[in-house]
């Protein structure tokens, strides 16, 4: 049934550190690589040498944020399914293909039951679901359910492909339902937040906001910049030949 479970024993999910992510897209590639070769229909691409588009379960956006004072900063922003406690994508499904697992809270699609109506993708505020244009079924992040419990893999590989591959350590995987887990402690320490809390989805995945900048003033604006004295204009009021040239050009 596409009714949501009243509670889940665990809440497996990701913690994404927006301070650390360097926007390299390695997680995007690792995700597509694993998930196109393993569970379910492959993640197809359309017109790769013309106007390319394709199915991805994880995408990196980049945002600029301009504070009240000072310079703008760039934040790389990975986004995949947040495995919400109140997942609106699950309850709208007419066929029972969408479901949330009681044992670990992972939101999955049973592709054998999906009719490709696309309503779950409409219901998701985060754009976490994409209909594969070749297979005609809905694809989404599985939290690499075929890796994390896979005893054929070495133990260090039993985590989602995106987490395993991240060279910056910006992605963390664990049980967010257990307040003593490493990911829960990290969220508490860094002030992790929900995306779009006003949508009432209660996402499991948490985002760690970028840390505040240090106190060194922006280039050219403060005394602390060691180059500032050398960059100041040398002559405010030119004299001699340059002064004559300046005045002559002004008159033209």
């Amino acid at each position: 049934m596409t009714a949501l479970p009243s509670h889940t024993d665990k809440k497996l999910g990701l913690v994404i550190d927006l301070d650390t992510c360097v926007g390299c897209h390695a997680c995007v590639t690792a995700c597509k690589g694993w998930n196109t070769q393993n569970y379910g229909a492959p993640l197809s691409d359309q017109d790769p040498y013309g106007k390319p588009s394709g199915t991805f379960l994880n995408r990196i956006h980049s945002f600029q944020s301009q504070p009240e004072t000072g310079l703008a900063r760039t934040t790389h922003f990975p986004k995949s399914c947040l495995h919400c406690d109140d997942a609106p994508c699950v309850t709208v499904c007419p066929t029972g293909a969408s479901y949330k697992r009681v044992e670990d809270g992972i939101v999955l699609v049973n592709e054998d039951a999906c009719m490709g109506c696309g309503l779950c993708a409409w219901a998701c505020p985060y754009g976490a679901r994409e209909m594969d244009q070749a297979a005609g079924v809905m694809k989404k992040c599985t939290l690499c359910v075929d890796r994390i419990y896979n005893e054929n893999l070495p133990e260090e590989d039993r985590e989602p492909a995106c987490v395993r591959t991240c060279p910056a350590g910006a992605r963390h995987f664990g049980d967010l339902g257990d307040p003593t887990s490493a990911v829960s402690l990290l969220v508490a320490d860094r002030g992790g937040v929900d995306l779009m809390p006003e949508q009432g989805t209660r996402p499991v995945n948490q985002y760690l906001p970028p840390r505040p900048r240090d106190t060194i003033a922006d280039v050219m604006t403060g005394d602390e910049d060691i180059l500032a004295p050398f960059l100041a204009p040398v002559a405010e009021d030119p004299k001699g030949f340059l002064g004559w040239l300046d005045r002559a050009l002004e008159k033209l």
């Binding site: 600029q64 944020s65 922003f77 906001p209």
Partner: peptide, 13 residues
């Protein structure tokens, strides 16, 4: 995005 300040998209995915 839950980012501070005025936020705009800098680069699409």
């Amino acid at each position: 995005t839950r980012l501070q300040g005025r936020v705009s998209l800098w680069e699409k995915p």
